[in-house]
Amino acid sequence: MFLGSSGVSPVVTLILAVCFLVLGARRLDTAIRLVVFQAILLALLTAILGLANGVGEMVFIAGLTLVIKAGLIPFILKKVVDRIGLSSETRSYVNRKMSFLIAGALVMVSYLATGQIAATQSAEGREILATAIAMLLIGLLVMMTRKLAVMQIVGFLIMENGLFLAGVGTTHGMPLVVELGIFLDMLIGVLVMGILTFRIQSSFGSINTEKLRNLRG
């Protein structure tokens, strides 16, 4: 990994590493904590970029990220976990070794896909883009392979973080209206998912999504 001039690169690499840690997490609360950590790193990155480029908006967004992603969403998740009283293992279809392997391949795919982006992009921007794609894919991988509904929300959050990384890292933030809309949406999304998780828990007696297999054909 090459080091960027503004010290952005190490942070980005760290964010990606957290993804791998989530893949390796054995317990549910570890996974949630790791996602919170990732969000904090993202907020940090946003702040650095904002200060470096002198965009005040981005500092604001960094704060917002901290509040929502490191505060509100984990709070809701915790609530859900507490209410349901989970057995705290992250059950998976694929073992950890395999997960790491696939994730590694995904990182390569991301670099491949972003490899020939034209020169308008800085090297750093390209790296952030690749990382973002890798995060999207790894988040999807988590959703795909983990059985519990809460882990799917975790995977979803990783994806969302990847998205945020792309938004902040490559473009210095989206227009504010859009950014706010996205935040609002995410929030409502997690809320709705939470509501549904509650209902599923009360109807099925479990949130193991393996049991949600009655509709087929």
Partner: peptide, 28 residues
């Protein structure tokens, strides 16, 4: 119905994240 709603929201939300990502790239 709950199962359907769950699948609906998960799949579409995941899908839509990709769409947002695409939008960001285009913005970029």
């Amino acid at each position: 119905a709950l199962e359907a709603a769950w699948k609906y929201i998960i799949l579409c939300t995941v899908g839509i994240i990709f769409a947002l990502f695409g939008t960001i790239i285009l913005y970029n």
